[in-house]
Design a protein around this nucleic acid. Structure first.
Length: 275
DNA sequence: GGCGATGTGATTA
DNA sequence: TAATCAAATCGCC
């Protein structure tokens, strides 16, 4: 479900609802996420903490607490992090419920359980391995075609795989990689090191554009993505190639083709994105 | 009802 | 560098 725009949408929603709230109680109903949830630790480190800020790094949500510890959340494929009125009417896959002040609760829900929910002390956070290897934020103004070009030039993988490599650039998943390549008119299987500098410049620009547009529309809801208040996004209405196998290209009417790369579907127009 | 597909990322060969 | 897997659900035949 969630790539950078969806995670950003959740973060912005949380910023508007839970800043300044105090954590009261923690309930863990299911510990079997990607990394097993340490309920004892959550129960020990979270109560009485004030929520100071919510930020995003890559596809991770970071909730900053007054005692310097942080909650690190990843939504995996099917995770939802919502704020709701306190209730005990738990739904299937509501795994972690955190009661906070003013009669609210923060609920982590994740049917496929590929997500992550951890509390880290300040020091643990600093050396957390999954965060240390992350590449550049695509929307950071320091992320330019110029500074990233050397890695593109030496990459031995297809450009789509490179775009989705979080050690290079973070936040771009299957949907937005397909969309950006389409608008840049580059074939997803083209080897990264065969791009011209100009093509890379255009592609990075399209990545940034598609991410910004998606954020503006509250993300993409294919199936089950919801923001922090439980509402869907609207960017699925704008998708130009993703999921459109056999449908006509919006530019030239040629049939959109699907191929599988590294176990993921790539959709492209064979005419606009010639090999 | 069954089967193939799914927005992620770690692990393995 | 790329297939495999984790697991539940959805949509299509």
């Amino acid at each position: 479900m969630p790539e950078l725009p969806e995670v950003e949408t959740v973060c912005r929603g949380l910023q508007q609802t839970i800043l300044g709230k105090r954590i009261q109680k923690v309930l863990v109903r299911e510990t079997r996420l990607r990394v097993p949830v340490n309920s004892k630790r959550l129960e020990k480190l979270l109560p009485d903490e004030e929520i100071l800020n919510v930020s995003r790094r890559s596809k991770y949500i970071i909730v900053h607490l007054s005692g310097q510890q942080k909650i690190l959340v990843h939504l995996g494929m099917s995770g939802q992090l919502t704020v709701q009125q306190h209730n005990e009417d738990f739904k299937k896959h509501d795994h972690i419920i955190i009661s906070i002040s003013d009669g609210l609760q923060l609920c982590y829900h994740d049917p496929r359980r590929f997500g992550l929910f951890e509390v880290l002390t300040e020091n643990e956070f600093k050396i957390y391995p999954r965060l240390l290897t992350l590449g550049l934020e695509p929307l950071d103004k320091k992320t330019t075609a110029k500074v990233t070009w050397p890695q593109v030039k030496k990459s031995k993988k297809p450009i789509k795989n490179l775009l989705m490599d979080a050690n290079f650039i973070v936040g771009v998943g299957n949907i937005y990689a397909n969309e950006a390549l389409y608008f840049a008119q580059i074939h997803p299987q083209k080897m990264a090191n065969e791009l011209t500098a100009r093509q890379w410049e255009i592609l990075l620009q399209q990545v940034q554009l598609v991410l910004r547009n998606a954020i503006q529309l509250g993300g993409t809801t294919l199936n089950d993505f919801v923001n922090s208040t439980g509402e869907s996004g609207y960017f699925q209405l704008e998708l130009a190639v993703y999921g459109r196998e056999n449908e006509p290209c919006k530019i030239c009417k040629e049939k959109i083709t699907r191929v599988v790369q590294s176990g993921r579907s790539s959709f492209f127009c064979p005419r606009c994105q010639a090999a």
